[in-house]
Write a protein that binds this DNA or RNA. Structure first.
Lengths: 295, 295
DNA sequence: AATTAACCATAATATTTTGTTATTATGTTT
DNA sequence: AAACATAATAACAAAATATTATGGTTAATT
């Protein structure tokens, strides 16, 4: 690592062109200046000054070091100015949530971003597990997940609840029919990243007698693209379970039937973040906006 | 100045998230790491780490310091890579010379620049005195002047010689007339930045008997724009003295007469640079190009 | 030309800074 | 509950850094 004190002495020397004056201005003695320059020359293994008489010119290396020094000086100045500032209208904001939620939230975010162009916003759609992992590794700052986390490092606040809907192909629609686990399992399940988690919640509440865990489930497919999960259902290939907001985003609503369940299961959305990590104030707007939109 | 060693320790700590591992990887002991962080926190007068148990998260300040550290690390890497390189096809080249010469040279320079877009080229038209001053203060690296300099800090090589021409309005043209100092002084002198210097050289050689120094000269005007020096001459308002190349650049040649002098005076062009200052190799092409063009 | 003053380099020494060892306190895991 | 791992602190050792004293050059002055 380059010694900044030496570099500073060098820069002052370049500016004064004078060892003794450099020493005076930096409140040190002249031999100190000489030694600093010598240390730098040893460190870079190059002459920095072309000496002649008691004067000198910079060598090419010296010139480059000086230029770099200017840039470093700038970086340092900016840092000490900014290190205790927390501007709510600039910087990077990173979010992760489920696909449907991302689709829903992102338009609101970008209209805010256009008010504050200094903001940079990234929203990643991902399943709960990945979101939690991204939070733990600081890849995102704020996540919305549908599970309570066990990690002590994370903290959560309740954002909203949303109904989980059991979706059948419209072709299977039968008024007031009371569907059983066996009926559904004959049709087959279209899985997705949160699919089994939803099954567990909805089926244990509604089909306690017959449902014996995910192993007994007839899984007919899997897809992790939000827009595509409901396609096989629409085509009559199977049923699935999704949050209401995800179902509403599907184009061909007439191809689907929402089965009304005896025990309505609400999925809970938790705003999740690192417990010991202070978020910049630029996140404040997003937090309150999300609470407003989702409540 | 921020201590780079401390910063380096901090960066490693951010990357390992672990004091002991940081110490091992940097071949130091764990208390050293603790102390480095403490020194940085004292220096910035802010917490950099939010500690909990034996773990920690970065504070906002810590995050900013880490980001700045990354930039500094990059600067340093680039420097140590480049400090002993001297690429002839990139970097800044600065020249100063007389206006006519600048007009003549610059087109050749820019066509070279278009071959090597990494080059940046500046050519400044200025009188000798300014050129010398700019060289001494490192504002330009290479200059062309028409005088021998006295400063020991500068070195010169002969580039070319060029005839100094005495220019009269075309209306004054008289075949084979032998002009005297008094004739000319009646017409009056149009001065320019190098005007008196040229007068001195040409008149002492040609009108030794009558010319008694610049004080006796009838100066009718002054302008330091190359394109405009010959305008008053063309209009019949006075005579002037210019290098041949400057005269050739004037549009209305038919308005001018070049007086043939008994003693032709050649102006000498000296390539001038700092004696103890090595020029980057990117100047090599320019030096040889200029020699080629002007010889 | 001789003298003086200004300036930078070097060597030896003093001082300050930095790093280490030993130890304690506090969590974490078995 | 015991063993282990980790970070903080204090005291001390080591290293880095700065200063004083001095000498050799170069430039300025007489």
């Amino acid at each position: 690592m380059i010694n900044q004190k030496y570099l500073n002495t060098f820069m002052k020397l370049v500016e004064t062109q004078h060892f003794t004056q450099t020493a005076e201005q930096l409140f040190m003695t002249q031999p100190g200046v000489t030694q600093h320059i010598q240390k730098l020359e040893k460190y870079f293994n190059t002459l920095l000054l072309q000496r002649y008489g008691k004067q000198f010119e910079l060598t090419l290396a010296g010139e480059k070091l000086y230029q770099t020094g200017l840039k470093m000086r700038l970086l340092e100045e900016q840092l000490s100015e900014q290190i205790n500032h927390d501007d709510p209208t600039q910087g990077h904001c990173s979010f992760a949530c489920s696909g449907p939620l991302a689709n829903f939230l992102y338009p609101h975010f970008i209209s805010y971003q256009s008010l504050h162009p200094q903001l940079s916003i990234s929203v990643e759609a991902a399943p709960n597990k990945n979101i939690i992992n991204d939070l733990l590794t600081n890849k995102v700052d704020l996540g919305i997940v549908t599970v309570e986390v066990i990690q002590e490092q994370l903290k959560q606040t309740l954002l909203a609840t949303e109904e989980l809907q059991l979706i059948l192909p419209a072709s299977f629609a039968q008024e007031a029919k009371k569907w059983s686990f066996v009926d559904l399992n004959n049709i087959g399940f279209i899985n997705h990243p949160d699919g089994l988690h939803f099954i567990e919640k909805v089926f244990t509440a509604n089909f306690k007698a017959d449902y014996k865990g995910v192993n007994s489930l007839n899984v007919k497919g899997y897809v992790n693209q939000l827009q595509q999960i409901l396609l096989p259902v629409a085509k009559g290939l199977g049923f699935t379970i999704l949050p209401k907001r995800a179902v509403l985003q599907f184009k061909q609503q007439d191809q689907l039937t929402v089965v009304s369940l005896e025990h309505v299961i609400e999925e809970t959305l938790y705003l999740t973040q690192k417990r010991y990590r202070q978020l910049p104030t630029r996140y404040d707007w997003f937090e309150s906006k999300m609470k407003m939109l989702l409540s």
